[in-house]
Each structure stands twice: as structure tokens, then as C-alpha cells.
Design a binder for these strands. Structure first.
Length: 134
DNA sequence: TTCGGAATTG
DNA sequence: CAATTCCGAA
């Protein structure tokens, strides 16, 4: 039969964007990719590959167009989109699966931390811990 | 196809 | 700071 959706890579809740507090930033690129990946209607353009967090882009131009619409950038294209993705390598949010075409992998360890900085709020009185992130 | 520098913007 | 754009290189 057709391969059932791998249960391990489905996004529970923590993958969602904490979204906008007033004055927040706009949606980041990986949030948008996550949103597309969670919808079956986009499996024609982007879908999970197999391993944990690995996904493959089937229609880069389609993804790029949707992303462009989202950001009001009508001249978006996979070349520019992937450029932003490449900057994510250094941020440890994404990685590239080499050998395959249009295949990337999410770095959940970092994604969770980025999404939930508020989870670590155990601050002992009198001492403020500061994480030298980003 | 993929990587990355550099300049610019919000 | 994150993303966009341009473009050369491997």
C-alpha cells in the first residue's frame, strides 16, 4: 500500500509558532516550511522524506511562490529561498541532506529551544542567568 | 545543484 | 536580526 505518514515526524504542538505578541517578528522561513509540511495538500510540493525531520521539496518553484505570497515577495524563487535556508545551517536550525536533490533536514533540538525559551524560566532569586544565544 | 559573500531592507 | 537580492564558484 501507500506508505502511511511516519508518525514520528508529525508535529505535536511545540513546532507551532508561539505567534505574535504585538510587535513580534514575522513568520520565519522554517515556520512556514513546517506549516506546509503539516498539510497534506502540500505533499505535491513538499513532504517528509523518511528520517526524523528530513523533508524533500518536490516543487521548489511552488514552495517559493507560496512563500513569496506569504511575504509579499512576488519575485521569490527557490534560489533565493534556499539562500535563506543556507543561512540556517549556521544557526543550527536546518541542515542539508547531501546526495539527494532538494532534501533538507530539520534540527529539532534547536527548534524546540527556539520555540520555547520560556520553558527555562527557573531563575533563582538574586541570580539572573543569561544564555548567550544567537 | 548547491554553497556562500556582499549589499540592502524592514 | 532575519530575509531579500545579485551573482560568481565548485
Amino acid at each position: 500500500m501507500f506508505s502511511p505518514p511516519p508518525e514520528g515526524i508529525a508535529f505535536p504542538d511545540w513546532a507551532y509558532k508561539p505567534e505574535s505578541s504585538p510587535g513580534s517578528r514575522q513568520i520565519q522561513l522554517w515556520h512556514f516550511i513546517l506549516e506546509l509540511l503539516q498539510k497534506e495538500e502540500y505533499q505535491g510540493v513538499i513532504a517528509w522524506q523518511g528520517d526524523y525531520g528530513e523533508f524533500v521539496i518536490k516543487d521548489p518553484d511552488e514552495v517559493a511562490r507560496l512563500w513569496g505570497i506569504r511575504k509579499c515577495k512576488p519575485h521569490m524563487n527557490y534560489d533565493k529561498l534556499s539562500r535563506a535556508l543556507r543561512y540556517y545551517y549556521n544557526k543550527r536550525i536546518l541542515h542539508k541532506t547531501k546526495g539527494k536533490r532538494f532534501t533538507y533536514k530539520f534540527n529539532f533540538s534547536k527548534v524546540v529551544l527556539v520555540n520555547y525559551p520560556l520553558l527555562d524560566m527557573a531563575i533563582p532569586p538574586g541570580k539572573i542567568a543569561q544564555a548567550p544565544l544567537s
